[in-house]
Design a protein around this nucleic acid. Structure first.
Lengths: 208, 208
DNA sequence: GGGTACATGTAATCAGTTACATGATTTA
DNA sequence: TAAATCATGTAACTGATTACATGTACCC
């Protein structure tokens, strides 16, 4: 009933907003480029946020009073954004309400496969392309696990822990994808199907 | 400099466009609601296309000369869209160029988990919510495999084959997701308890 | 000293989302 | 016959994408 209304701003916040808020809350005052670099190294592996977004979102959040801006005076004139108390509140409020949305799994390759019957001749090329792509991405994940985690700023063990955990889902997906597309490329039914088990027993090559 | 410009139209086609083109090419003349129903039963399981999209896209494609429209005269005044030869060409051209894009895996739950360190107390609720969601979705897939495939129109065995293959990737993802979130949930203390630190004797996710 | 990759933004467009609205069928 | 659900759209807004553009640092 109180007239103080900053909480309404919470309504029009998008995933991008929370990404920006969260990163700045954790890493401290950041420039859009800091954000871009961090995203690229982490969640950007499976959820792409074009850099223009990370330049445009902070000013929006500033208008909502969730961030403050401080612009350099010298040549580069970089914009440095810090989180406000209202920003932290919005972030906490978001985390306090577990998402009830399922994963959006948007994959052009799958969409093409979905229409494979319309142009059967093109299917092998599609499958091989996807297989190569996902193998490469899987390699990225597995390499990232061995190399030292190099965040743009100092990070605590806890941060490293959750970052790693999150990326692990990306890795699990890529493993499944590689399996899947390999099976398609081999013109086998996908792994786990009854036909696949029969096939692998008699070891016969799939025929056209 | 020739005024006939339909080939350029190919440029501004989106995934939604190809979805619509492909469905109409395969299923024959369709109303937006036909499209909606088909999508819901298939690819919509992991890539959501709001119904407003499927009502708006066909007129756009009609403007581009890729579809034709025929509107009922009676009460319902349904709009029935058919594919043109140009539409088929655009579709074939798309299928002939295998996508080189990786999967976009957009998941609010993962985003929240990514920031779990900022509000540790909320993490268990997030994990449990996601676990329940993905288990339910997995059940949908597994139920769909046993029930008779009920397309809105007649479908050939080949169509059924590829449709099933495509959906299987969704199923594989959900399996991975259930495993993942179960592990996260198990590693987290139960809500209110601060001592569930050494439960991971078995360390693995509960077997369903 | 010129190329090239990194860094840092802005602008225009538009697809996608959300909300609104109502008609037709089924069911209790 | 009231309620619920299915069916069928339209409209407004805006976040996201794409394209453009230039500056700066580093390396042959």
């Amino acid at each position: 009933m109180n007239p103080e209304r900053t909480s309404l701003a919470t309504a029009q916040l998008t995933p991008t907003s929370y990404l920006v808020l969260g990163l700045i809350a954790r890493e401290g005052p950041s420039t859009p480029y800091d954000l871009k670099r961090h995203v690229t190294a982490t969640i950007g592996h499976f959820w792409s946020f074009p850099h223009a977004l990370l330049y445009k979102e902070p000013p929006r959040l500033k208008d909502l009073g969730l961030l403050t801006e401080e612009r350099e005076a010298d040549g580069r004139r970089r914009r440095l954004f810090s989180i406000t108390e209202a920003g932290r509140r919005a972030l906490r409020a978001w985390l306090a309400h577990p998402s009830q949305q399922l994963t959006e799994l948007r994959d052009l390759g799958l969409l093409q496969l979905f229409f494979a019957d319309l142009e059967p001749a093109t299917t092998p090329a599609i499958a091989h392309e996807q297989l190569a792509l996902h193998r490469a991405q899987l390699a990225v994940y597995e390499e990232g696990r061995s190399t030292a985690p190099r965040g743009p700023r100092s990070t605590s063990p806890t941060v490293e822990h959750w970052r790693g955990v999150t990326l692990r889902m990306g890795l699990l997906y890529e493993r499944a994808a590689v399996e899947f597309w390999a099976a398609v490329a081999a013109r086998e039914p996908a792994p786990g199907s009854a036909t696949a088990r029969r096939r692998s027993k008699d070891g016969s090559a799939p025929k056209r």
